[in-house]
Design a binder for these strands. Structure first.
Length: 371
DNA sequence: CAACCGTGGAT
DNA sequence: TATCCAAGGTT
């Protein structure tokens, strides 16, 4: 890692902020410095691209214009507003924090990074972002952009995938950040990271800070940031049950913790949970599911495969391959042993579905007709 | 600390 | 298709 003199730091600040003043992106959450606006946008932007967030942000502000509106919101309306954005605990933490602000802080936001981190869903990055943008506090906001930009500028060799590395970057950036315009400085770094200093296809030769980019000057920019690779997602094979009656389709509520917590979905059966025997044929596996529906839930069901190929969906750490099975039950069947309910397709639009459930429904509707 | 938590876009 | 990346936080 190289170090900058006080003179060089001043020159960098000037160059960066001059560029930002003339080239900053026009974004809905940049119209003012209202902490509620800054906060909601920062939560939505966690691990999510700007162009994805924009329509969600605009809709969210129509539904919940103030922190009080968010605190008072019914959960189903909140989740419906978040539908499709992913990482759904962000939405639940958002409302938790809104209630913290309204009750614990009587509507007056904490204005420094330390206190902001006490709110649900606000970690070191988001605390720094809100403190600097909304409250003009001179603190670093170390996100993926800051890692990438400063790793290249200063040839920082620490592995950005390791949690402890954040401290190194915070220390460096807190020295370089503009004390007069910390919010603009942090946002300028992000705009830089989203334009000339992207992860791939970067264009450093035209960057406004190319003269400060040591890795570029040394021709080794592709070596930064240093980051160890992630593990591959674990594959899960499931049967997805599309069970119909005159009361609608059978849905099951997912557990209150873990992936897609509390979402309603078609019932899923993990092949691994059915048997350890890898040699069983698919028809034998289907018979096991039928037997399980009978013994565990008192539901007499005959199932048959709907599509040749499974519906696949990849999360960050899991890949699901779901083979769809369909069946029918009489409307007066006793559902009291099954942890689920009938839902009519007419109300699907009012529910919050995960992407994978939407895929299952879509694939099922496109099934070959039985003529 | 390492593992977990969604989705869409780019390559 | 597989992999990585995108304004990270929680456990």
């Amino acid at each position: 890692m190289i170090e900058w003199s006080e003179t060089k730091i001043k020159a960098f600040q000037q160059t960066l902020l001059d560029w930002y003043d003339h080239n900053k992106r026009t974004l809905p959450w940049r119209q003012d410095h209202n902490p509620y606006h800054v906060w909601v946008s920062e939560i939505m932007l966690q691990q999510t691209q700007v162009q994805t967030v924009i329509p969600y942000y605009l809709h969210f502000m129509e539904e919940f214009p103030t922190v009080q509106d968010l605190a008072d919101a019914p959960e189903d309306k909140l989740m419906k507003t978040w539908e499709g954005l992913g990482y759904y605990s962000r939405a639940r933490n958002l409302q938790k924090a809104a209630r913290q602000v309204v009750t614990d802080y009587h509507g007056k936001w904490p204005s420094n990074a330390h206190d902001l981190q006490e709110l649900s869903g606000i970690g070191p990055y988001t605390a720094g972002a809100i403190a600097s943008i909304a409250f003009n506090q001179p603190v670093a906001a170390v996100d993926g952009n800051a890692f990438r930009v400063f790793a290249r500028l200063l040839e920082i060799n620490a592995d950005v995938a390791k949690p402890q590395t954040r401290k190194i970057f915070e220390k460096v950036i807190n020295k370089i950040i503009s004390k007069d315009r910390p919010g603009d400085f942090n946002q300028a770094i992000m705009d830089l990271g989203a334009s000339y200093m992207t992860a791939t296809n970067f264009d450093s030769s035209h960057s406004p800070v190319r003269a400060f980019n040591q890795a570029f000057l040394d021709g080794i920019e592709d070596q930064y940031p240093v980051k160890t690779k992630k593990k591959r997602p674990v594959v899960h094979d499931y049967f997805g049950l599309v069970i119909r009656s005159d009361n609608g389709y059978l849905f099951q509520k997912r557990p209150s913790s873990g992936i897609l917590a509390n979402f309603w979905m078609f019932p899923l059966f993990d092949h691994q949970d059915l048997t350890d025997d890898q040699s069983l044929s698919k028809s034998a596996l289907i018979q096991i599911v039928e037997a399980k529906m009978q013994s565990d839930y008192q539901l007499p069901i005959k199932l048959s495969q709907v599509l040749d190929k499974p519906v696949t969906h990849t999360f960050t750490h899991q890949q699901w391959k779901i083979t769809l099975l369909e069946g029918r039950l009489p409307e007066n069947v006793d559902l009291s042993y099954f942890p689920g309910k009938w839902i009519q397709p007419a109300v699907f639009d009012e529910m919050t579905f995960s992407k994978v459930q939407s895929k299952l429904w879509s694939a099922y509707q496109k099934r070959p007709s039985i003529s």
